[in-house]
Design a binder for these strands. Structure first.
Length: 290
DNA sequence: GCTTTGGTATCGGAGTATTC
DNA sequence: GAATACTCCGATACCAAAGC
């Protein structure tokens, strides 16, 4: 369980996102409501570039805005680099966005000259962008195509998912705000195991608070995403006691019906949760206290 | 006020393109 | 074919401006 050594940063699970990284990032780089100081605006612009363009070198990033103006690119490239990796001034180092964990190094570009570092958003970085940048669906679509290999179970199946659950594909934004992860109000709807499954997601990954591999974090996010589909904001009349199957359950079933791989993957998680609760219940029963 | 950030300058490495 | 510009980086220094 180690993260790739050259990514240049460490980050934790979703709990860590909600209770540590998100508040930290809000303090350092702003949230969506407060008026941002210039530095926060600069960082957010940088994040947005990586959001819509995917993996890039600092030079690529500068080039997006100043196509052929070499001197402008040079200047901007320095600016981006300093924001990314921090700076050392008179022997004092100040951290950059890379140190916080919103951005990671991803391989090297060998296009020209000496190999150069490439950067992209981490999964936390993607969540932070969804949280604070005012992104259009079009922006999100661009990001999805650039980052599909990072979150394959969701971004890799985007068009398929969209054809079934429509705008629910954008609901990752709920998670990006730290909602419906461990909130008590999940218990409200007693007709699905939403609360139990969400709780189990947290249990399953709880030991990776300090550090998690990107692959495991992607799995955790994916479990959240599909489990979230069980959530129904309002109990519509059409879905009252008369109908047999809960709307959320129907939605999940429709998604799994035509994607066996996805279905098997989630089923394994589902069984795991089931066994976990069975064991815990037995533990309580057999404790002999009462 | 002190610290952090922005603007800019300068140096140097490693490769490519151009000139002679 | 060697000398030279030029490109794409990466690092640090100095001072001013911004922010607390």
């Amino acid at each position: 369980m180690s993260l790739s050594p050259d990514q240049g940063t460490q980050y934790g699970n979703l709990f860590s996102y909600k209770y540590y990284l998100r508040p930290l990032a809000h303090r350092l780089y702003g949230n969506s409501s407060t008026t941002k100081v210039k530095h926060q605006q600069n960082v957010q612009k940088l994040l947005q570039i990586l959001f819509t363009n995917g993996t890039s070198t600092t030079w690529d990033m500068a080039k997006i805005k100043f196509h052929n103006d070499i001197s402008a690119i040079r200047t901007k490239e320095k600016e981006y680099r300093r924001l990314l990796i921090g700076r050392t001034d008179r022997g004092r180092h100040s951290p950059g966005v890379l140190d916080v964990g919103l951005i990671v190094k991803d391989g090297k570009s060998y296009k020209k000259g000496s190999p150069s570092d490439q950067y992209r958003l981490s999964l936390h970085g993607i969540l932070y962008c969804l949280d604070v940048l005012n992104l259009s669906h079009k922006d999100v679509e661009k990001m999805v195509s650039k980052y599909s290999n990072i979150l394959p179970k969701i971004f890799g199946k985007w068009e398929y998912l969209k054809s079934i659950i429509e705008d629910d594909v954008y609901k990752l934004q709920i998670l990006s705000k730290g909602l419906l992860l461990d909130n008590p109000n999940l218990v409200k709807d007693q007709r699905t195991p939403l609360y139990e499954l969400m709780s189990y997601i947290n249990i399953k990954y709880r030991r990776y608070y300090e550090s998690i591999s990107e692959k495991d974090l992607a799995e955790q996010i994916s479990y959240w995403f599909y489990t979230y589909l069980l959530y129904q904001r309002k109990t519509s009349k059409a879905n009252s006691n008369k109908t047999k199957t809960h709307l959320g359950v129907q939605k999940l079933q429709r998604v799994f019906k035509r994607d066996i791989e996805l279905s098997d993957w989630y089923k394994e998680f589902f069984k795991e949760a089931e066994n976990y609760y069975k064991d815990r219940t037995n533990m309580i029963k057999n404790s002999g206290i009462f």
